[in-house]
Amino acid sequence: MPTVLPFSIHVPEADLADLRERLVRFRPLPDSPRRPTSGMSAQYLGELVETWRAWDWRAREEWLNTHPQFLADIGDTTVHFAHLRSARADAPALLVMHGWPHTFALQLDFADLLPDFHVVVPSFPGFGYSTPYADGPMTETRLAATMHALMTEILGYTAYLTYGEDVSANVNDLIAGSHPEAVAGVVVTHSHFPSIAERPGLTAPDEVAFFARLDRWGGANGAYGHVQATRPDTLAAALNDSPAGLLAWLAEKLVEWSDTPEGDPEAVERRISRDRILTEAMIYWTTQSIGTSFRPYYEGADQPGEMPQVEVPASVHIQRHEGDYPESLARRFYLDLRVFERLDEGGHFAIAEVPAVMAERVRAFAREIDLL
């Protein structure tokens, strides 16, 4: 049997002292003249840094460790995961995956609301407490195989539900499409995109308009991805050396991609609290994993390729940043589409932003397919 080792988070006191010293030496910059609208401002970053400097990490660490965590070797990576077992032995299993720039920690509030499920929340290889793949690229197919092995070979589940967002959205679809014998259903907030090669063949006006709109958005907002895909190590060297820089880089995306008013950085805390934002930064900082978290960008794991259609039951909930996503695309890809809706609230990080809403959606779907 594969070895599964218990794991708990403990940051050495020397590391905390070093972090505080760096934060004390923070050199703030004023906003640039005519600064473009973005999810970060000098004022908000200053507030975050000041809070981080005085923040009680030990209390947060203790909260994280109330969630049972483990390590397991899968191929050439050691995967870290939280495993929240239900009191019901026959409860359905649910795999919950994160993307970038978040970590497993941002998914825990959602997992806590599902005591009637066995919930597994892994860290992707190279993120936080999971080691990067030792050899070869980090592809969607490889990630799907690793996550499926975690659920079946390591944890022994013969059937499970799966959920993913951001980088893990395609992994979610791949797991469901490639392992219909083991996947009981797929929950989706980032619905399937046709591959780059397939998109020129789209003719429906709403489908063409959707991807044209995304292309326009990416031209104005996609610099982060281009840098992470082309100069990952240079950027990582700077972020790994400056906690304030790391915090600015991460928090900007949490702001911009959440369901918050444009140009209002502090509004993000109505969806994702300051404690949760700082937890994300702390995990990246103390594990020094920001560089390896860029691997999906420079190795192409964030680019949708052709993949098998999903035949298992699907429950699709369109998050607000993709509110104009055409239903026709979902119906062509998810062949047993049980639910298609557009969320009234919740953006890119849907289960973190509206955990109660999404927990009830998962529970309703499980009842629909006779798992509860």
Rank of each mutant, 00 (worst) to 15 (best):
V4G: 00
V4N: 02
A14S: 15
E21H: 14
P28L: 08
P28F: 09
L29P: 08
L29T: 13
P30A: 15
D31I: 04
R34M: 11
R34Y: 12
Y44M: 11
E47M: 14
L48C: 10
R53H: 14
E61T: 02
E61Q: 11
W63P: 04
N65Q: 10
Q69Y: 02
A72N: 02
D76F: 08
T77E: 07
A82L: 02
R85W: 05
A89D: 15
L95E: 04
L95R: 01
M97E: 05
T103C: 10
A105M: 08
L106E: 14
L108I: 06
A111F: 04
A111C: 03
L113Y: 04
L114T: 04
P115W: 05
V120M: 03
F127V: 09
P132V: 09
P132Y: 08
Y133T: 08
D135M: 11
M138R: 12
T139K: 05
A144M: 02
A144L: 00
A145Q: 13
M147P: 04
A149D: 12
A149Y: 06
Y163F: 14
E165C: 13
S168G: 09
S168V: 08
H179W: 14
A184H: 05
S195I: 09
I196R: 15
R199W: 07
P205Y: 07
D215G: 12
W217Y: 15
G222T: 04
Y224T: 00
Y224S: 03
R231C: 12
R231Y: 10
D233W: 12
L239S: 02
D241R: 05
L246R: 00
W257A: 02
S258W: 01
D259F: 04
G263H: 05
P265K: 01
E266P: 14
I272L: 11
R276D: 09
T287V: 10
I290Q: 01
S293Y: 00
P304Y: 09
G305P: 03
E306C: 11
E306L: 13
M307L: 13
Q309H: 15
Q309W: 10
V316E: 06
I318P: 09
R320C: 12
G323L: 14
D324L: 10
D324Y: 09
S328V: 13
A330D: 09
D336L: 06
E341W: 03
E345H: 14
G346L: 06
G347T: 07
A352E: 08
P355N: 06
V362G: 00
V362T: 01
R363P: 05
F365K: 00
F365I: 01
R367T: 12
L371S: 02
L372T: 13
